[in-house]
Design a binder for these strands. Structure first.
Lengths: 219, 219
DNA sequence: GTCACTTGTTACCGAACGGTCACACCCATG
DNA sequence: CATGGGTGTGACCGTTCGGTAACAAGTGAC
């Protein structure tokens, strides 16, 4: 299957007590991040890079400068860790919404325009697509606990966007919101062969067109 | 990880020579499909159901009423089999294009409308999303041979759709095609929480709106 | 110092996986 | 009947994986 081997050669060569860059130095070197937080951050990154099924708990623990035992003390199973990373990603999205709202208070049209540009920037920055959507594709087991997190996020996101569209005064705010979401999901998936300019520009242009078609002038 | 176990209990219980439903009866029972074809068909289905990483070659062979050895005699590796299934899926898409063209010869607008309805029907029938796009999400290894197949398919699809849009006489046929593709990919991914009516209707409505916005009356 | 708590380390387990081997079997062709 | 190619069967190998056990080491509060 030619699985990308990320695991191999755990030990960093030297046999003497090596570079413990962040651990065991309480307040000195690098802000003393708790193991649990290091694990979550690292897991987010590695899941995005290699897929959930493509990376093992051992490799995650090692990349987080800790070990498997500590990982399993904080998370009962790999599934739990997956859920936690998805939850963190949801919170990141929530932060983006809050940022938009504070930057353009009481201006729904400007907020909607900012949403488009923010997501377009996000698309250009992270070529791996939406972590949550990717997780939904990868986890086919119907009873996987992550599906609740995914479902919850999607409902929340759609609610927020629909509400924002409604506040712009357009008719059919739900149709507009659903169209924008379809464009977003599509852009996140199809990072190949979306024209010369890439899915980010493609997404942005399609959104602008859709907004004008719905009578929303993007301020 | 709570991987869905599809493999277990290979043997059908009875120890006597059991129900060999299709094999060893040359021209009698069920049309005598060659093992290779059975494997490909079964693999397509199982990859869609469980994901490429979620199903093993053993389970595929057994579901195809054959065994692992025969599978490996026809396909050098699981990766080869994956590529073959993606190729088959590409051909199915090609058949759809041919069908549309014969049903509405020399009528680009009607063909485009038929494309929308055909894909919408397809979305409603198969809730698993696009197998090729799913494969792209699941196979993160950059050197996986399937990526060539995927890329090839996407380029082909985009070329056909762009050409069709151009023949409708609209300006910016590429932008229109890219928008429709974004909507399609999005609808295929987001089978959850796309409004009350599901992504299929959502996709269809968004496409109609987009087409009218681009001045293409869907006959 | 002592105690409780969190981490680190190592080894291990059972299962599933991709892939291979050797051998028996069937069946069509000659 | 003999031969040869495609197929079925079961065992096997090496690896990786998720998860656990047992024990040592560090750390902060009292």
């Amino acid at each position: 299957m030619s699985i990308a081997v990320v695991n191999k050669n755990a030990k960093r060569g030297s046999t003497v007590k090596p570079d413990r860059e962040s651990t065991s130095t309480p307040g000195s070197s690098s802000t003393k991040v708790a193991p649990r937080d290091r694990i979550v951050t690292t897991a987010c990154e590695l899941f995005r890079q290699h897929g959930i099924r493509g990376i093992g708990v051992d490799a995650i623990a090692e990349a987080a400068s800790t070990n498997k035992m500590t990982l399993y003390r904080h998370f009962g199973s790999k599934d739990d860790l997956v859920c936690e990373t998805l939850r963190v990603n949801s919170e990141k999205s929530g932060a983006m919404w809050a940022d938009i709202e504070t930057r353009f208070p009481d201006d729904a049209k400007a907020q909607l325009g900012a949403w488009v540009t923010a997501l377009s920037d996000c698309l250009q920055r992270e070529p791996s697509g939406c972590d949550i959507a990717n997780a939904a594709v990868e986890l086919k087991e119907a009873d996987h606990p992550a599906h609740a997190v995914i479902e919850n996020f999607k409902i929340l996101q759609r609610g927020k966007l629909t509400d924002l569209c409604r506040r712009t005064g357009t008719q059919e705010p739900e149709t507009l919101a659903d169209t924008l979401l379809l464009l977003l999901e599509g852009a996140r998936v199809s990072r190949q062969a979306s024209g010369l300019e890439g899915p980010a520009q493609c997404f942005q242009r399609a959104c602008r067109n859709t907004l004008t078609a719905f009578g929303v002038s993007t301020a």
